[in-house]
Amino acid sequence: MSGSEGSGPVRVLVVDDDFMVAKVHGGFVGRTPGFVTVGVAHHGAEALERAVELRPDLVLLDLYLPDRSGLEVLDDLRAAVPGTDVLMVTAARDAETVRAAVRGGVVNYLIKPFGFEDLRDRLLRYAAGREALAGEQDADQSAVDRLFAGAPAAPPPAPGTRTGPRASLPKGLSGETADLVATALRAADGDLSAAETAERVGISRVSARRYLEFFTDSGRAEVRLRYGSAGRPERRYRAV
């Protein structure tokens, strides 16, 4: 993980030989809470130059580049900018390529074509992993598990309840969406309303409200009321 955890949005360099695809992926990054596209490159050599210049936290790296393989670029990035992470985005799906990318240290591997939700999910999980050890001198097992799982820690179960991954989620709520809502809350500069959370995560306002209320009831969020000039007060949520 990069050394700038907790110091602002995750800075991303997008590398793809297709100009339109690079533009689309850069837009996906910009729509994801807590992320910003700081540069784009279309060749392997350009990718390395831009990475050294910009020192991004994360590179979205295509495998098929005009001048060299993305796996070769991955090795060079590891040597030139060791504090930068790499998420491979490619149409290559053969097992050996995937294994080579994992050996090279990629934080995730996303097969093209994919939509905004697919990339957003992986970016938010990456952000959750970054936050697991942010500002810590030593790590306990819970933080290490969150780092490698790329997901926020679940609240401790109440006495007598079932244990296990997301066992305390009420019926109708999914663990994956709960992770996204939790990450959006933590990435927010201040508190969020249900409508704002829904827009950031890509779900309905009613669904966002259910997750936010669950987090409030389980001690993972706090709520306050904002009173306007007229009408009902707005409920605002903040991660705790």
Rank of each mutant, 00 (worst) to 15 (best):
L173S: 02
E222F: 11
L192D: 00
A47P: 05
S229H: 08
V36G: 10
S168Y: 09
A188R: 07
A51N: 06
G231Q: 09
V86I: 13
R209M: 12
D62T: 00
T97C: 14
L87K: 04
V201K: 08
E176F: 13
V181M: 10
D138Y: 15
V107P: 03
R205V: 13
R226H: 09
V73K: 06
R236K: 07
D18I: 00
E136W: 13
R11W: 04
P56M: 07
P170V: 13
P152C: 08
L225F: 09
A128H: 02
D94N: 14
A47Y: 03
V59H: 04
A22N: 03
S4E: 07
E196H: 08
R125H: 10
S207Q: 12
N108T: 10
G150E: 00
R99V: 11
A143G: 08
P233Y: 08
G150N: 05
A80D: 07
Q137H: 12
A22C: 09
V14C: 02
T163F: 12
G26A: 13
S229E: 10
F148L: 14
R120H: 09
T90S: 15
V21T: 13
A194E: 06
L60Y: 02
L123H: 03
A149I: 04
L225H: 05
R162M: 05
D217H: 08
A91H: 05
D18T: 01
G135Y: 04
A167I: 06
G6C: 02
D189W: 06
V29K: 06
L77E: 03
R11C: 03
R186H: 09
L185G: 00
E199P: 05
V106S: 01
Q137I: 06
R162E: 04
V98K: 11
G231T: 10
G34A: 06
E176W: 11
L192I: 10
V107C: 08
A134M: 11
F28E: 00
E96A: 15
G26W: 00
A128D: 15
T32Y: 04
L133R: 12
T84Y: 01
L60D: 01
E222M: 11
G3W: 11
V36E: 14
G172Y: 04
T161N: 09
A128C: 13
D217Y: 03
E49R: 13
G172P: 03
